[in-house]
Amino acid sequence: MQGRKNYTEKLFISFQLSDRIPEENLYGRLRETLALSFLYKDTEELYGRTGNPSIDPVVFFKLLITGYLENITSDRKLVEHCGMRMDVLYFLGYDLDEELPWHSTISRTRQLYPASLFEALFNKVFALCVDSGMVSGHTQAVDSAPIKANASMESVVPKMPATPMDDHMKKVSEENQETAKKHVGTVSPARVSAPEHELKRVEKHHRNLRDSPVRPAGASHKKARLLSNKTHYSPRDPDARISVKPGKARKLNYHCSMAVDTAEGVISHIQSDFADGRDSQYLIDISLQVQDRLRKNELVMTDLLAEVIPMAPTTIFSNKGRLPGGYPSSGDINLK
């Protein structure tokens, strides 16, 4: 006989989330493994003694972890997604009939907490991975990628000249004057800090672009061809930098570098830098940060895999010397 399901909401139900979450579910295992109670003590000084209760610090960081695992960058979409997932609600410690924190509360809390608190949580999770035997330590792989800033190229305006410049740079400032007035608002204008010889090189490059009959890849209009970090910036996101990859349009980006332990793919370090720098500029600092984190967990790094420039295997760390800039070394690390 053919069955037919009729749905009628019940006024009273007997239901427990824990009964509906499989034992091998990722969020169920995280709830049992990841102890974040230390965050209460670490965040205590950030709150006053009166007023309405804030979002639970443990819930806040669990929401960020969920956003990373689900690849959700919008706080509004993150809250909507969590409300539809029983396993995530169980991980957060919320029942079906409880309202999740407002998305704007997540944004404000993120601005309240210092970077050191996020790093403390990262170190705690990394230590748990080490204790579980997921980290070998001896071989680390480093790679980087541009991360799009939350600002468009249309927001880019000229920097105010620190000293009188040639006719070309004045012309660029005049052409962008209306745009500058529209976007700068109350933000203090940036000043041109590049030396004169670099500005001359930028001017020569712009002149070659104007005289060339072939438009460069990714240039959709004339203005995009004349933008440089030496002479322009975004008042909406002053730390963002103009960068471009071959065959791609110019965008305002950040430079994100990540180190991964090759044993189980555990992230051992991650950092963001200005997008106008090269991978090789940030490699030494990344190596030192990874080495320090591994040392605190009684592990030693011996090999570092990175794509910097085509070169033969070279020792960049040595027990016999010091790193460029006077940084001390504690082991032999071969750059493959």
Rank of each mutant, 00 (worst) to 15 (best):
D95S: 12
V192R: 13
A190K: 12
L112I: 03
V184P: 06
S329K: 07
I21F: 09
S107L: 11
N150Q: 11
F60S: 01
I270P: 00
C256T: 09
R191P: 02
V135N: 11
A312G: 00
G137A: 05
G326T: 08
N208D: 10
F12G: 03
E23M: 07
S18H: 08
C256L: 10
N123F: 05
E23S: 06
D131R: 09
S37D: 13
Y94T: 05
D75Y: 14
D97E: 11
E198R: 15
H197S: 09
E174T: 07
P158W: 01
S37F: 05
S188H: 06
V135H: 10
D292P: 05
R278C: 12
R322N: 14
N71I: 13
A141C: 07
P328H: 09
S329H: 13
R4S: 06
Q16D: 10
E70N: 08
Y68K: 07
L199P: 12
Y68W: 12
L305D: 00
L34R: 02
G133M: 00
R278G: 06
A141D: 00
P313T: 02
D97R: 10
T43K: 05
S287Q: 14
M301G: 06
I72R: 05
G265L: 07
K204Q: 07
F122A: 03
S193D: 12
P246A: 04
I284D: 15
P161G: 01
T50L: 04
L63I: 13
M169D: 03
L117E: 02
R322H: 14
G83E: 15
A249D: 05
H197E: 12
R110V: 02
T73S: 15
K10C: 13
Y90A: 04
V130D: 02
Y47A: 06
P328Q: 10
L117V: 02
A275T: 03
D332W: 13
G28N: 05
L46I: 01
R293F: 02
K5M: 14
D237N: 11
Y113S: 00
P101I: 04
K230F: 13
L89C: 00
L39F: 12
M134Q: 13
H206R: 07
S54A: 10
S220R: 07
K5N: 10
P189D: 03
I242D: 01
A259P: 03
R293W: 02
I106K: 02
I55R: 01
V156E: 03
V260Q: 04
R278M: 14
S37M: 01
G28I: 01
E119W: 00
D56R: 03
V260A: 01
M86A: 14
C82H: 14
